[in-house]
Computed example of a mutant assay.
Amino acid sequence: MSTFRHADALWADFPQLVPAVLHVEHTVARRDLTEYYEIAERRLEGTTEAQLPEIQAWRRAFGQLGLKPTQYRCASESLLRRFRKEKSLPGIHPVIDLCNAVSLAYAIPIAVLDLARITGDLEVRYATGDEEYLTFGGEVEHPQPGEVVFADEAGHAHARRWTNRQSGRSAVSDRTETVLIVAEALHETAVDDVKALVSALEHELGHPRRAILSRADPEFRY
C-alpha cells in the first residue's frame, strides 16, 4: 500500500491548505458536463478569473514561492482563462474532461494521475533539484531547488510549480485503469468548497474512496 501526503514543511508554510484525494479504480463513461460549464459562465459574468477568491489565493501562494502570478498560473486559472476566451475546452479523456469541468465550476485546481506510472509513495514537497520531470514533449527537466513538486519514491516529479503543470509521465490515457485525483485549495471558504467539489466528483464517479486531508491528518493510503 502506498501513501499520498503533503510534506510537513509545506503545511507549516501554507496552514490554510485544504487538499482532497480520490482513488478511482475504473474508467469513467463520457458525461454531459453542461452543468459545470454553466456554473463557470455565471461566475465569470462581468469579471475575470483573476478576480475570483480561489484564484487570488493561489496567486498569493505563487508569489510567496517567488513565482510571477501572470507567468505561472495554477491549473484552474489557466482552464478558466481559456474557457472565458473560447467558451469551451477540448475533449481529452472522459475522467480528465470531467475533472476539468469541475475545476472550472469551483475554480480549484485538480490533478489527475495514472497510478500505474507512480512509484511508491507520492508526496507534495519542496524539490531538491535532483528530481526528474518528463514533459509532454518527452524532454526531461529538473525542477529548481525549493520548487513545489509532486514527487514519488523514484525521484520522478509528477507536477512542477505545485498546481501549475503536470508531467507527461503519469498522464491519463486510454490504457489507464486506476487514477488518483488531487484537488487543493487555499482560499477562505476552502473547507466548504472542497467538500462540495468532492461531493460532485463522488456523484459522477460512483462513490470512489476519498478523503479530505488536514495538517493533523495528512495521509491518504491507496
Results as ranks from 00 to 15, higher is better:
residue 159 A to W: 05
residue 96 I to F: 00
residue 157 A to E: 03
residue 53 P to G: 07
residue 90 P to L: 04
residue 2 S to K: 04
residue 87 K to T: 13
residue 91 G to M: 08
residue 71 Q to K: 11
residue 163 T to R: 04
residue 55 I to M: 03
residue 113 L to C: 07
residue 173 S to Q: 10
residue 104 L to W: 05
residue 144 Q to R: 12
residue 138 G to I: 11
residue 194 V to C: 01
residue 144 Q to C: 09
residue 76 S to N: 10
residue 34 T to S: 15
residue 41 E to H: 08
residue 194 V to P: 00
residue 158 H to L: 09
residue 155 G to L: 09
residue 136 F to S: 08
residue 163 T to V: 09
residue 125 R to N: 02
residue 182 V to A: 06
residue 10 L to M: 14
residue 135 T to F: 08
residue 184 E to I: 01
residue 216 A to M: 11
residue 6 H to Q: 03
residue 91 G to A: 14
residue 102 V to R: 10
residue 182 V to R: 06
residue 34 T to H: 11
residue 186 L to Q: 02
residue 163 T to D: 04
residue 182 V to D: 02
residue 151 A to R: 02
residue 191 V to H: 13
residue 215 R to D: 06
residue 149 V to Y: 08
residue 8 D to T: 11
residue 155 G to Q: 10
residue 56 Q to P: 06
residue 201 L to C: 05
residue 218 P to T: 03
residue 67 L to D: 04
residue 143 P to G: 12
residue 128 T to E: 12
residue 118 I to C: 03
residue 119 T to W: 09
residue 27 T to A: 14
residue 105 A to R: 07
residue 61 A to F: 04
residue 79 L to Y: 10
residue 199 S to W: 02
residue 72 Y to G: 03
residue 162 W to V: 06
residue 177 E to G: 11
residue 222 Y to N: 03
residue 81 R to N: 11
residue 66 G to P: 10
residue 90 P to N: 04
residue 41 E to I: 13
residue 153 E to G: 00
residue 122 L to N: 03
residue 128 T to G: 10
residue 49 E to F: 11
residue 32 D to R: 15
residue 162 W to A: 00
residue 89 L to W: 04
residue 65 L to H: 07
residue 217 D to L: 07
residue 93 H to E: 04
residue 7 A to W: 01
residue 15 P to C: 09
residue 20 A to P: 02
residue 157 A to C: 14
residue 168 G to P: 03
residue 18 V to T: 14
residue 156 H to Y: 14
residue 106 Y to T: 14
residue 185 A to N: 03
residue 99 C to F: 10
residue 214 S to W: 09
residue 139 E to I: 13
residue 82 R to G: 08
residue 36 Y to C: 07
residue 104 L to P: 04
residue 123 E to K: 00
residue 181 I to W: 00
residue 154 A to H: 05
residue 7 A to T: 03
residue 115 L to R: 06
residue 175 R to S: 12
residue 102 V to P: 11
residue 39 I to M: 12
residue 87 K to Q: 15
residue 38 E to V: 05
residue 222 Y to I: 03
residue 3 T to G: 02
residue 39 I to T: 14
residue 190 A to E: 03
residue 69 P to Y: 02
residue 77 E to P: 05
residue 79 L to P: 01
residue 81 R to C: 08
residue 197 L to S: 04
residue 17 L to N: 01
residue 121 D to L: 04
residue 110 I to E: 02
residue 69 P to C: 07
residue 212 I to G: 06
residue 158 H to K: 06
residue 24 V to Q: 05
residue 207 H to N: 15
residue 177 E to C: 11
residue 68 K to C: 09
